[in-house]
């Protein structure tokens, strides 16, 4: 479990990072918290001749609120995001997702941007980004651009970032009013990748559900938005049949088997935990 030789680059600005990626092309990989990349390199499942270290790029560490959105810089540590007052207030779903990520040692190193850019389909933050219609900010050789979360996740560990591009930040819309935010997952052990999980947000207005956002993870190559279930919840309001909402969310899923659970299990349990998550979210919104 020793990685093959590589050269480490220590840039201090995004422009330097982009230049290095441009120079080394396929042989280079940016490294953020390293919690996924380093084990893959140590197991020799991945090998890069150049690692571009983002840890010295201080401009990626910012958290800011701008009007109706919250921006989290790519290198904000997960442990920071969990407790950052602006994030807790403006994007509670992000903060609530983080305790489910690995263990605290992992969260101390792991970053918000790294998790989203890594695009593991079992990860929490990609699902949160998808549920909340987050906007991904990227910078590459052709300048900067924005990518909607729904267009960002392509398949397992694959995003719509192009060669030479890095994720620099994520903008989350700020929800107001009476809201509830819940991340619910079934994992073999605390901190394991979810067998299946859901990130859910609701905004209620009396007995109406004004807004609903539901995204599942661990059920396919990407996180999956449950739009029909959201519509059913909005249509049904706070007294909607949540089992039916859960079933709608799971209806079109086709998760695969692994050593921990069958695809059938994931699909069935997806329906269960969506119903449970919505129930908790409604309760929170109404309290």
């Amino acid at each position: 479990m020793k990685p093959a030789p590589f050269e480490m680059h220590l840039p201090t600005s995004v422009s330097e990072v982009v230049a290095l990626l441009d120079e080394h092309g396929d042989l280079a990989k940016p490294i953020a918290g390293g919690q996924s990349l380093v084990p893959m390199m140590s197991l020799r499942l991945a090998s890069f001749e150049h690692l571009i270290d983002l840890n010295g790029v201080s401009e990626l560490n910012q958290v800011s609120v701008n009007g109706d959105s919250l921006r989290i810089g790519a290198m904000v540590r997960q442990s920071t995001a969990e407790h950052d007052p602006q994030i807790v207030k403006s994007a509670p779903l992000v903060a609530k997702a983080i305790p489910h990520i690995g263990h605290f040692q992992i969260r101390n190193r792991g970053t918000v941007g790294g998790s989203i850019a890594h695009a593991d389909p079992s990860s929490e933050l990609p699902a949160v980004a998808l549920a909340l219609d987050a906007t991904i900010e990227a910078v590459g050789p052709n300048g900067s651009r924005e990518i909607a979360a729904k267009d960002f996740f392509v398949s397992t560990w694959e995003t719509s970032l192009i060669d030479g591009e890095i994720l620099t930040g994520v903008r989350f819309p700020i929800w107001s009013g009476k809201c509830g935010f819940v991340v619910e997952e079934v994992a073999r052990r605390h901190g394991d990748f979810a067998l299946v999980g859901v990130a859910a947000a609701v905004q209620v207005d009396g007995s109406k559900v004004a807004k609903a956002a539901i995204a599942l993870f661990g059920v396919g190559g990407t996180p999956v938005r449950a739009s029909e279930a959201e519509q059913a919840l909005i249509a049904g309001g706070t007294s909607a049949d949540l089992d039916a909402v859960g079933n709608l969310a799971a209806m079109n899923l086709a998760p695969s088997d692994d050593v921990h659970a069958s695809g059938e299990y994931r699909k069935a349990v997806a329906a269960t935990i969506v119903a449970r998550a919505i129930a908790k979210a409604l309760k929170e919104a109404q309290s």
Binding site: P39, L43, R188, R189, H190, G191, D192, F193, V259, H260
Partner: peptide, 15 residues
């Protein structure tokens, strides 16, 4: 099929 601790699950304190 359980060649790392991602797949070979040893109980941890919360369990």
């Amino acid at each position: 099929l359980a060649t790392t601790f991602l797949d070979y699950l040893v109980p941890t304190a919360p369990e």
